[in-house]
Design a protein around this nucleic acid. Structure first.
Lengths: 136, 136
DNA sequence: CTTTTAGTGCAACTCGATTGCAAAGATTAT
DNA sequence: ATAATCTTTGCAATCGAGTTGCACTAAAAG
C-alpha cells in the first residue's frame, strides 16, 4: 500500500495539508466517497477546497469519479498503474438500499463493439441492486 | 410502431393531454431526451407537469432513465415488451462532443457475476466518446 | 528578502430536480 | 344530473449538488 505522499509524488501533484487528508480519507474507505461524505468527515476543511482537490486529483489520475445515479458523484482512488484508459475501467456496484458504491475490480469489462465510426473514450458502468449487507 | 394511446393502455397509465405530447416527443426522437429538451420542445407545457409525467412513465415502465454523466437525466421509451428487468438492459452511448445519448440496443450486456450475496436489480451502463457525426 | 505563483476559505450563485398549493379536469357515488 | 372525491396540471418557491469570484495565506522562485 502506498502512502499519500508517495501517490502524490508519482502522480506529480504537489502535496498540501488538504490534499493529504482528502487522499487519506479516500484511501481509508473501501467504498467510493462523495464530496459530502468527505466534507462531513473532515469537519474543518472547506467544501470548495475539497471540491478543487478532487478536481485536481481527477485531472492527474489520482482518483476516478463515478456517477452512480444517487445524485452525488463519488470518487475512489485509482488502482496502482491505472491511467483511466478504457482498459483500466471496472464496474461499480451501487447499493440502492444503503447508498454505498463498490468498485468491482475483479469483473472484467468486455470489449464493446461500438457502431461504425464511434470512438470510445471512457465508460461509466454502474450495476445497481442490494449489497451483501442489505440483501437479507 | 405503437401509438401513444396504445402504449399507455398497455402500461395501464391513464391518458391525458400532457402525457400524450410527452410520449409523442419521446417516440419521435431517436436519442434519449432530457427534461429540458422536452420542456423546450413543448413550449406551453409546464416543466413540473412534464417532470411528474416522466416519473409516472418511469414507474409504469413506459420509459427508462439514463444518467449519462451530462448532469441531466435523460429518458427514452422502452422497447416493446420491456420490463426494465436486467435482461432488458442495453448500453447507452454518450457523445462528449454533442451531448447526445444513444441507446445501443444491438450490443448485448454480458452476464455479470456479482460478489456473493449481491443482488442485481438494475444497471446504468454508459459508454462515452465521440459519435459518428462528431468523430471527424 | 522580495516577488510571483499556487492553494485555501468564505460567500454567493447556478441550475437541475423537486415540492406545496390551489385551480382545473376527470371519475365515482348519490 | 349533481355532488363529492380523486387526479392532473400550472405556478411559484425551495432544495441541494456543484461551481465560481475574490481576498487572504502559504509556498516556490528569483
Amino acid at each position: 500500500m502506498q502512502t499519500e505522499e508517495e501517490i502524490l509524488k508519482i502522480k506529480k501533484v504537489k502535496n498540501t495539508a488538504v490534499r493529504t487528508v482528502v487522499l487519506r480519507h479516500l484511501l481509508s474507505h473501501e467504498k467510493a466517497q462523495s464530496l459530502k461524505d468527505i466534507e462531513n468527515a473532515l469537519a474543518y476543511t472547506d467544501r470548495s477546497s475539497i471540491f478543487r482537490t478532487l478536481k485536481t486529483f481527477e485531472e492527474n489520475k489520482v482518483i476516478h469519479s463515478i456517477e452512480d445515479g444517487s445524485g452525488m458523484t463519488k470518487y475512489a482512488v485509482c488502482a496502482e498503474g491505472c491511467n483511466c484508459d478504457p482498459i483500466d475501467l471496472h464496474y461499480h456496484f451501487y447499493c440502492t438500499n444503503c447508498d454505498k458504491t463498490f468498485c468491482l475490480f475483479d469483473i472484467p469489462i468486455p470489449n464493446i463493439q461500438l457502431p461504425k465510426n464511434f470512438k470510445l473514450q471512457q465508460a461509466n458502468m454502474v450495476v445497481k441492486g442490494l449489497c451483501d449487507n442489505c440483501n437479507r
